Each structure stands twice: as C-alpha cells, then as structure tokens.
Amino acid sequence: MEDLFSELEIYENEEQKQKIEELNEIVNGMNEEEFDSVFTIELFNKMDKMIEEKKMSIENTILLLKHAGYCIAMKNIWIYSSKTSSMDDRFEKMIAIENKKKSEEKDEYLLTDLCECCVFLNGWISLESISICMPCLLKAASKKEESEETRKENEMALLALSEMGYYV
C-alpha cells in the first residue's frame, strides 16, 4: 500500500486522481491495524511535502484523505498520527485563511472539505477550527437539494459533525 502512495508523485493531476480512486477502493477494505500501519505521521508529512512541491494538488489530497476519514469514522477507528503532522498544520491554516475571505471570494466547498478532513483525521482540533467548522458543516448538512452528490455531501457533513462531538 505504501508503494502505491509513493507512486502518486510520478503522475500528473488526472492520472493521479485515477490512482487515488483506486487507492480509495483499497482503503474501503482496510481494518484498524492496516489503517494504523498506513496512515502514519510519515505519510501525512510526505503528502504535505508533495503539495508544497506541487507534486500533488490539494484537491487530490482531499479526495484521498476525505475518503479515508469517512472510512475511519464509519469503522469507528481512531488514528492520531495526523494531528502532529505538517498536513494538519496546513489544513488548519487553510481553514482559517478561507474563512477570513469575503463571502464572494470564499470557496465554501473547499472549506467544507478541509473541515471534514480535519475532523475525521484528527484526535483533536483547535477551538478556532471548531468555531469555523461547526457552522460550515451545519450549513453543508442542511442543503435541501436532492441530487446523489448533494446527499453524499450531506452525509459526509453530518458524519463529521457527529465525530466533532468527541472534541468539543
């Protein structure tokens, strides 16, 4: 599995996205022991470095981590390695920056995705992030559209909110 993550560096954005979707299928079948051995601080730091070096987009990173976080929450698994990683720092800073933007400049989908990743993958999140993520996730969960994509987004936001209860 670790080799598959390492290979992500060599692909361009669209090919990388396809590989991440393949990885997400593997993540679906992982158990707690496998999550602990794969989702390590080294992996989170490596992914952060890949973003920094523009070898991986933030969108592709979110695609992978949001799915992993969803699986972790659904399987009631706790991983603590992301909290001490540089990736966690990046996400928390991005949440604060995106939140400070004027409403017409703010990317609500990005903010929601970042909040979901932080809540799903962290043992703890900062009070500042909670004060941003709680309303953001409530807003995402309350969307009334009936499309399949919106229902999945609502489910993710509600699941993230349920996980947040452990941190407040």
Rank of each mutant, 00 (worst) to 15 (best):
T112I: 10
I130W: 02
S81W: 07
N28S: 14
Y70R: 14
E33L: 13
E105D: 12
V168F: 12
S126V: 00
S37K: 08
G123N: 00
W78N: 13
L23S: 03
Q16M: 08
W78E: 14
M47Y: 10
L114C: 01
F120Y: 12
Y167P: 01
E2W: 10
I20G: 01
E21G: 04
A73N: 08
N28F: 09
E153H: 08
N28W: 09
D113L: 04
I41S: 07
L8Q: 02
Q18M: 14
D113K: 05
N24W: 04
E116W: 03
E149Y: 15
E9S: 14
I95L: 10
M74C: 09
L161G: 02
C71D: 08
K143C: 06
I97W: 00
V119I: 12
K102Y: 08
L4R: 07
T40P: 02
L161K: 02
S131T: 02
E34L: 06
N13C: 12
K49E: 11
E163M: 10
S162W: 09
S6M: 12
S37F: 03
S126W: 00
A141Q: 07
K83V: 12
C136S: 11
I58V: 11
S86K: 15
E148D: 15
E15G: 08
E128V: 04
L4D: 03
M134K: 12
E108A: 01
T61N: 11
C115H: 01
C118N: 15
G29S: 10
E15C: 09
S147W: 09
K144S: 04
E105A: 13
E9R: 13
F39S: 02
F91K: 00
E53Y: 15
Y167N: 12
K143R: 12
H67T: 00
N13W: 10
N154W: 04
S57L: 06
A68M: 06
Y70K: 11
L43F: 10
A141N: 00
V168E: 08
E149V: 15
E7L: 09
E146F: 14
L111S: 05
E145K: 08
Q18H: 14
A160H: 02
M156H: 05
M74R: 14
E21L: 09
D36L: 11
K143N: 08
L159F: 06
G69K: 06
N154H: 07
L138A: 14
E148A: 15
E7M: 14
L159T: 10
I51P: 03
Y80M: 05
E98I: 00
K139D: 04
S6D: 12
M74T: 10
I125V: 09
S86C: 11
Y167Q: 13
S85Y: 06
K152H: 15
S131E: 07
I10K: 10
T61D: 07
Y167E: 11
K49Y: 05
